[in-house]
């Protein structure tokens, strides 16, 4: 494990491939007239003052309940959305959304979408989709399918090249997931954003995809932003983990440390909610209450209405990040908020 930690320390010193600096995103301006009629003039703050950085060769896990802003954060990274405040930097240069990024900047970030089947044109065979990703924007031509490169890509994700002529509907979920990864690798990105890449898969398939992701990272040195609601998967794959709640990162740090000794009560609740596969273990603990309505955020710490350790202070003031070792946590009571975390 020390080797892993050394690796992440080493990476910290370099310029990150992609960096979010105090980014906020509210959804209101982009609403149509119709939407505004429905929901009044309220603006939902999907992302609130978030900073994070991803280096090539490392895996950053993003975890949190649904609606916590994981996917919005991913879209800010890929440029599908532009922040209202703060900056997105690619290799140190400020960039905006896809429209403002040059094709080569777009190609620095690869994406594997949550709904893989949706992310392929149903009328295109696999090789056409891969070719679209392989060729530079300007040189694309239909005759230019480079079969060697497509073969090579398919081999690198452990698929047989015969698959190249098939259509997405003819492939199984696991195969399609591999093709999606191949497409993301095609344009030689520095970072790949993976949105729930294994959530719809069977356990055996999930295992092979996780192994493949690890192999691909070792071979190509690519960085991953790994979004998942499955903490087991994140624990297995991630070097660093960012825990999100109500559009904020509430805790961030090296995966192993964070999972062994969570500092934020929310991280702790997430971990306790996982059902153990040993029937002898204690049943999982649920977290009462619902995530806050993003159009009407609670004052102070966003987690305080559900937090077992909340005090009056939490309801009044928003905590700042506190650094404990190489973990940063947004809680007044960390690391003492969680009783018994030192027992382990």
């Amino acid at each position: 494990m020390t080797q892993r930690e050394r690796k992440s320390n080493e990476l910290q010193s370099r310029t990150p491939v992609i960096e979010l600096q105090n980014v906020s995103k509210t959804f209101s301006e982009e609403q149509s007239v119709f939407d505004r009629l429905w929901s009044g003039d309220s603006a939902a703050e999907a992302i609130c003052n978030v900073s994070m950085a991803v280096n090539s060769g490392e895996t950053v896990g993003l975890v949190g309940e649904s609606g916590c802003g994981k996917s919005t954060l991913a879209k800010l990274l890929t440029g599908q959305l532009t922040p209202n405040e703060g900056h997105v930097r690619l290799d140190g240069t400020r960039v905006g959304g896809i429209k403002d990024r040059s094709p080569s900047q777009c190609r620095q970030i690869g994406v594997v979408f949550q709904h893989v089947r949706e992310s392929f044109d149903p009328r295109w065979p696999v090789n056409r989709s891969l070719t679209e990703a392989l060729n530079d924007a300007e040189t694309v031509s239909e005759g230019g399918t480079n079969f060697n490169e497509v073969d090579g890509l398919l081999r690198s994700v452990e698929l047989s090249p015969e698959i190249a002529d098939r259509y997405p509907r003819e492939l199984s979920g696991g195969q399609l997931q591999r093709v999606a990864l191949a497409r993301a690798l095609a344009h030689d990105p520095d970072v790949i954003v993976l949105d729930e890449p294994v959530s719809g898969l069977d356990m055996a398939t999930q295992a092979t995809i996780l192994n493949l992701l690890a192999d691909v990272q070792r071979r190509f040195g690519v960085g991953y932003v790994f979004i998942s609601h499955d903490l087991d998967v994140v624990r297995y794959l991630a070097d660093r983990v960012a825990v999100m709640y109500a559009g904020e990162i509430v805790e961030e740090g090296p995966a192993r440390k964070l999972f062994e000794h969570p500092n934020h009560p929310y991280t702790d609740s997430l971990l306790r909610a996982i059902p153990s596969i040993d029937p002898g273990d204690a049943p999982p603990n649920s977290l009462q209450g619902d995530p806050p309505d993003l159009t009407d955020r609670p004052t102070g710490c966003p987690f305080h209405p559900r937090c077992p350790a909340a005090t009056a202070e939490c309801a009044e003031h928003q905590p700042n990040f506190e650094t404990i070792g190489n973990i940063r946590v947004q809680c007044f009571h960390a690391p003492h908020a969680i009783k018994g975390s030192s027992d382990n």
């Binding site: 398939t205 999930q206 092979t208 297995y236």
Partner: peptide, 23 residues
């Protein structure tokens, strides 16, 4: 046994997840 083995829970980060080939 296979189901239990290929559960990520039973794997240590850095090691390979046990997996069974084939569908």
């Amino acid at each position: 046994r296979m189901l239990l083995e290929c559960s990520v829970r039973n794997s240590t980060p850095g090691e390979r997840v046990q997996s069974v080939s084939g569908t």
